[in-house]
């Protein structure tokens, strides 16, 4: 079975071509997402270079346990997502559907853990306002990045969850195969959000510890 789109849409006349175009287009978008997050990483590492001790002091306050659990959750969700796409290709629709729901559940789990972590962070006065708990002012900047990066990442994840729900509904209605383009694009987006999380995790939880 070759990789062709399930249903043709205007202006395409060939399913193979439409699939090719879809994959290409979503990758262009992903490249652009890479630059969006890249800007934050650039700022982060530039600052860290200038204020190493302050930043690393901040990093010592992030909760490695929550971070690690969340990373594992997302890696697993990516695994499930990837199986979903492949299962659909070999016409194992039931497996694909299960995997989509698993991905979704893991994503929700991530947000749940993140929420717990945020609560704890607030409790420890890690919101970088004047009541911030930390001696070095640069630690406050670190937490500026912490909240911004994790929050923007979570927003992306939320959007991904929206797309997953859509896939789940399609799978229920047994029209997933007709919409295999959507499976493909959603899963690429989802994976990218996970790749970004790997970098966020390493940056905020690991390098400074």
């Amino acid at each position: 079975m070759s990789q062709a789109s399930g249903v043709l849409h205007e202006p395409f006349t060939s399913g193979v071509r439409q699939r090719e175009a879809t994959i290409f287009a979503i990758w262009i978008f992903l490249a652009s997402e890479l630059l969006l997050f890249g800007g934050m990483f650039f700022a982060f590492y530039t600052y860290r270079h200038a204020h190493t001790s302050g930043f690393d002091g901040g990093a010592r306050h992030t909760n490695l346990l929550f971070g690690a659990i969340n990373t594992a959750l997302l890696l697993t969700s990516s695994f499930a997502m990837s199986v979903a796409g492949r299962a659909l290709e070999v016409k194992r629709a039931a497996l694909a559907e299960v995997c989509i729901w698993v991905t979704l559940a893991l994503g929700v789990g991530f947000l749940g853990v993140k929420g717990l972590e945020y609560v704890q962070d607030l409790h420890e006065h890690l919101w970088p306002n004047t009541r911030f708990d930390g001696a070095d002012p640069a630690s406050r900047i670190f937490f500026g990045f912490y909240w911004t990066m994790t929050f923007i990442h979570s927003c992306h994840l939320l959007i991904g969850l929206g797309f997953l729900i859509r896939l789940g509904i399609m799978a229920r209605a047994r029209v997933l195969e007709a919409n295999s383009d959507s499976v493909e694009t959603t899963s690429l987006y989802w994976h990218l959000v996970d790749v970004i999380w790997i970098m966020v995790f390493t940056t905020l939880y690991l390098v400074g510890k």
């Binding site: 079975m1 070759s2 890696l75 695994f79 492949r86 070999v90």
Partner: peptide
Amino acid sequence: PQLYEAPSSTVILGPALVWVGLLALL
């Protein structure tokens, strides 16, 4: 365009190996 045609065993096995690798790296 490329065919991703794959024996159905790699539907799970391939990604599973990578998944284990990713967790190990973590």
